[in-house]
Design a protein around this nucleic acid. Structure first.
Lengths: 211, 211
DNA sequence: TGTACATCAGTGAACGCGCGTTCACTGATGTAC
DNA sequence: TGTACATCAGTGAACGCGCGTTCACTGATGTAC
């Protein structure tokens, strides 16, 4: 992602360019490979320029994470609303959107969930991540309402669903899946589909036992 | 984990000490905070000493990852064999061992699954990780054999189970779980238990449909 | 048991490097009159 | 429309720092005889 020749002295949108280039670098070489100096060079700008847009390296990463959570939420909403209207299909759509987001926005994804991520300290950031999280919560509760998921506290169901897609995304993105044996792109819908069928089956099972 | 006063000129077991201190540093401050120089200082040794035991920084990390996979496998075996003999309990035990390992060996865990981890390039390392992975595979097949999991290709089941525990472990270790609302220590058995019940329910469901 | 010597595992100074960040500066842009 | 000036967003040199790694060295240890 080399940057287009800048028009003149002023860049135009250096702030966004820095984010875009950062994400690209992190995607390819990992977070530890990101240096502000190399970044400025790649953006075609001197080493001091980024400081007119970000207080420091941490602020840049926080901005990336924020953009990531916003995009993730957007992607999940779109995919959910394009799915068939039954809750299980909607849950499936959200799960697939999550994994797809991680794979096609790996740079963002890595920053969003980095250990010691600034999420804990930045209010806007944790608000954005909670909004995304609530989407999942909502659709799990929809499933419960139509008995497509076991009744009771939705907590474990929500965290199980989140863990499932987060784990798959992480393993994929980190190259831990044995790609010789398995095609992750095919695996993702299989796994999210499996979750849906399992939830339905367990709900039916427990419903039958209760009756 | 300050290191005991060294006996004399020779350290005794500097190699293992370096690994232990590294893991401790990574656990607390993350992988990017690990420098060989600071590490040597913390181990009470000069900056050149580590090079008598590891060719470079990457070799140290590879050794940590290898030890991690070996310990993970060991922990899963122990927990599995201490569980009730039915396959679902054994699967549950393995899952809980996985999460528990990540939480109490965070330094190892981070190195093991780091993006661009050396796993891809180091034969011993990928062998060790595959051994651990096969444990999970084996117990899922046990479940299938007693119809405690849906019949057919075990692949999706295995990867779903792996994703579930890996995701939970990762979210926990990275501090992404909202600990104000949820106690991860209580969540782990709930989630692995849920998986077991879902597998059983789905197997019953599909068995009934087939009959 | 004692001595000579090879090897092992340390020391600590030195190297070159890229980093984050600062700062005085300057060219470009926008606005008031 | 033209001019003065404030502000914005760049430049590029400079800072101090900690890093990974190398290397000539030396003290400690093990072994052969």
């Amino acid at each position: 992602m080399r940057v287009k020749k800048k028009a003149g002295y002023h860049h135009g949108d250096l702030r966004q360019t820095l984010i875009d280039v950062s994400v690209d670098v992190i995607d390819r070489d990992g977070l530890e490979a990101l240096s502000l100096r190399a970044l400025a060079t790649r953006a075609g700008v001197s080493s001091g320029a980024p400081y007119h847009h970000f207080a420091d390296r941490a602020a840049l990463l926080a901005a990336i994470a924020l953009e990531g959570f916003e995009r993730l939420e957007q992607a999940m909403i779109e995919r959910r609303d394009a799915a068939p209207p039954d809750p299980v299909s909607r849950l499936d759509a959200i799960g697939q959107a999550y994994v797809a987001f991680a794979v096609s926005n790996t740079g963002h994804f890595r920053v969003m969930f980095r250990d010691n991520s600034p999420a804990a300290r930045n209010a806007a950031l944790s608000a954005a991540s909670q909004k995304a999280y609530r989407l999942l919560f909502g659709v799990v509760e929809e499933c419960q309402r139509v008995a497509a998921a076991p009744a009771g506290d939705p907590g474990p169901l929500v965290y199980a669903a989140w863990s499932l897609v987060h784990g798959l995304a992480t393993l994929w993105v980190d190259g831990a899946l044995p790609t010789a044996r398995v095609d992750p792109a095919r695996l993702a819908p299989e796994v999210t589909g499996l979750l849906g069928r399992m939830l339905v089956a367990l709900a039916r099972d427990e419903g039958a036992r209760r009756a």
